[in-house]
């Protein structure tokens, strides 16, 4: 099935796809729905997660490929506002996007090395939820931990 989301109401597993947004599509992302100004991300690779059966984007991720560091930085992630917090209908949106970043890092030959700069208050949650390690300035995931995360969110890799 690949990536999938869980419907909190019905318990159904719904197939999802993650695909790259064109520059034009990035410029059209609304601040109201995705919280931040995504226009600045047009210089990077922005991917959107959608359910296979719908065209609606439920979550966005912006990735910075850093060849010299052999790493990918997650610059920004945002679930659509209606899919944030208790009101959200689907589980696994951000996790699938992070797992996707890990798979892109392996694909690029970076050994699954992905990092992000966390807000201090949520360091523990990134650690327990996704397996990131804190380095003192950023949180990293790589190698077998990246593979574990990919296997958790992408069904065909198990």
């Amino acid at each position: 099935m690949g990536y999938y989301l869980e419907d909190k109401l019905t318990g159904e597993r719904l197939p999802a796809v993650i695909s790259r947004l064109s520059r034009k599509e990035v410029m059209l992302v609304g601040k109201k729905q995705f919280h931040f100004d995504w226009k600045t991300e047009a210089l990077y690779e922005v991917y959107g997660l959608k359910l296979v059966r719908s065209r609606e984007i439920l979550g966005l991720i912006s990735l910075d490929y850093q060849a010299s560091n052999r790493a990918i930085e997650i610059r920004l992630i945002a679930n659509a506002s209606e899919h944030t917090g208790r009101r959200k209908r689907y589980e696994r949106i951000a996790g699938s996007l992070i797992a996707f970043a890990c798979s892109k890092s392996v694909e690029a030959g970076f050994g699954g090395f992905v990092y992000l700069r966390p807000k201090t208050k949520i360091i523990d949650h990134y650690r327990s939820e996704y397996g990131f390690k804190y380095t003192g300035f950023s949180m990293i995931i790589e190698g077998s931990n990246s593979e574990i995360l990919i296997n958790r969110y992408h069904e065909d890799t198990n």
Binding site: H35, F36, D37, G59, I61, I74, R75, L76, I77, A78, N79, H83, T84, G85, R86, K88, I93, A94, G95, L116, R117, P118, K119, K121, I122, D124, H125, Y126, E129
Partner: peptide, 27 residues
Amino acid sequence: KSERKVIERLFREYTLEELADAFVFPV
């Protein structure tokens, strides 16, 4: 500047777990 206000609001509205489950923030 406006994103700082958005982030402050999000931290008021959601639990830390809900935030980690939906965001990587600008820092």
